[in-house]
Amino acid sequence: MRVGNDKSLVQSRQPSGTEKRGSVSSPDYTDFHFNTKTAPAMSDEKYKTAIIEQAKKDQAAGKFQSDSAGFRNLVKSYVSAVSPDRKNIISQGLRAIYKNTRQEPKTFNLLDYMFGSVKYSKEADDVSYAEFYDSNGEMVASFSNGRWISYGTKAEDARESQLWGIYNQAWNSAARANGGTTSSIDVTG
């Protein structure tokens, strides 16, 4: 067993550089950790079948959940169907920040716009911090120190949990059908 830690970044997304407003680069929406609303690729019934098939395939290949590129793609597609429109919330929020010509306090500002609201700190053209909220008032992303973090909404979290449940059951059933688990048992405290 190897257990360690270091200071590398995992989920905070470094700006992709594909789009930039003011001093802020947009997040990379193709990344596994940054979803935005996308039309579902299939019906929920077909998704369920695809998740079960993916689990069987991964079990046979000795992979589990995010070890598998197919699983990650399926998660992104399945969860994005209920994601907020982060792309518009963030781009319109940044547009509102940079369009705001009123005298701003040096601390925290709040702007409401069509897709949601944004709380931010800006000095001159430099946005040091921003929190983006959807129309339900849920925080969907933050930007700080040049890094983006995507926060799951209740709907996204519930859908991802649902996918894990379907997948795990199918994976374990496949393992039993194949005569056992693929790994040694290692109970540690």
Binding site: V3, K7, L9, V10, K106, F108, S128, E131, N168, S183
Partner: peptide, 24 residues
Amino acid sequence: LKTGQTGNSSEVTFRVSGLPANAV
């Protein structure tokens, strides 16, 4: 942080491996 400002801290990362492959 400057007075009045909000921000995120630096991160600490934990790597976990060696548990059963299908441990959830």
